[in-house]
Simulated assay, not measured.
Amino acid sequence: MSLDNTSHSGRPGPDELVPSRYALKIGEIDVMVISDGVLTLPGAMLGHNADPAARAAWSDYNFLPTDMLDWGLNVVVVRSGSQTILIDAGLGDDPDLNLPKAGQLAHRLEAAGIDLASVTDVVLTHMHMDHIGMLLVDGVKEQLRPDLRIHVADAEVKFWTHPDFSHVSMPQGFPDALRAAAKRFAEEYRSQLRTFEEEYEVAPGVVVTRTGGHTPGHSVVRLASGGDRLMFAGDAVFAVGFEHPDWYNGFEHDPEEAARVRVRLLRELAASGELLVATHLPFPSVGHVAVDGDTFRWVPIFWDY
């Protein structure tokens, strides 16, 4: 099965009124970005260290509401050689936090013709619930291969044994939900975890690298084949982070380090010209990064039909 072919087959069902998958080729590697829906979150979480007036001005400039904002929630499926790799696993069931617009991944994978039993590897950028949730949905584990490999940084697994929420700025209920999801995930999938220290090649041209910052084990995935390159940056980059990379996102466990990581990655992307995909950029979140004075500029691709 070619992910490029499956992306253009079929039509949206009655509950699929927006595009939910987008395919491209990175050399010989097939890539499909799949939307898990959107997370509706307080606008203050764009930058809890920023002046509220500056946050409101950014939202107004981008024709966005200032009180609540819909964040994209994207995952990526990669086919490299004989391996089918799921990068992050979406929200899954709504953990009683009023996130009804997300948790679409299982049926959107099915609609794209991707059988869960065909997935050989899962790469987790980190263990927040919106990146592991589908794996915890009832009946999903039984559909996965018994020899499925789940790649995650060792520092991430260790962090969630005693997570530190002292520097975050999350709405009420989120820390408990995040803690519970990570604990359950570690218990249910411990035997399938394949941890790494700093960097690991999951498949030919597919390399996961720990960055830290957002969480201690937060990682990015770099794809390279035939001169083409793409980075899936997980939660290192948010929409506001191009113009305001020093603004702290409410979910960052080490916001100062997260800002340093963000600037480093954006500089790298601007210098290399490679494509960027990130979890919470608007779907399909494929584009380039350009330097814009002392900050950066997001340049979305033109959709290729």
Rank of each mutant, 00 (worst) to 15 (best):
Met1Pro: 14
Thr6Val: 13
Thr6His: 11
His8Met: 13
Gly10Asp: 10
Pro12Tyr: 09
Gly13Val: 09
Gly13Ile: 06
Val18Tyr: 12
Pro19Tyr: 09
Ser20His: 15
Tyr22Cys: 10
Leu24Thr: 10
Gly27Asn: 08
Met32Leu: 14
Leu39Trp: 01
Pro52Lys: 08
Arg55Phe: 06
Asp60Cys: 05
Thr66Arg: 15
Met68Asn: 07
Leu69Pro: 04
Asp70Lys: 07
Trp71Ala: 11
Val76Leu: 14
Ser82Arg: 07
Leu91Arg: 02
Leu91Gly: 09
Asp96Lys: 11
Asn98Thr: 09
Pro100Met: 00
Leu105Met: 06
His107Ile: 04
Leu109Phe: 05
Gly113Thr: 11
Asp121Gly: 01
Asp130Cys: 07
His131Ala: 13
Gly133Glu: 10
Leu135Ala: 14
Leu136Ser: 06
Leu136Trp: 06
Gly139Trp: 06
Gln143Ile: 03
Leu144Tyr: 06
Pro146Phe: 09
Ala153Leu: 08
Pro171Asp: 08
Gly173His: 05
Ala177Lys: 12
Ala182Asp: 10
Ala182Ile: 04
Tyr189Thr: 07
Arg190Tyr: 10
Glu199Asp: 09
Glu199Gly: 02
Val202Pro: 00
Val207Gly: 00
Thr211Asn: 09
Ser219Val: 02
Arg222His: 13
Arg222Leu: 10
Gly226Cys: 02
Arg229Gln: 11
Ala236Cys: 15
His244Gly: 01
Trp247Cys: 07
Glu252Tyr: 09
Glu256Tyr: 04
Val261Pro: 00
Leu265Glu: 01
Gly273Phe: 02
Leu281Pro: 05
Leu281Glu: 07
Ser285Gln: 12
Gly287Glu: 02
His288Phe: 10
Ala290Val: 02
Ala290Asp: 10
Val291Lys: 12
Trp298Gly: 03
Pro300Thr: 03
Trp303Glu: 13
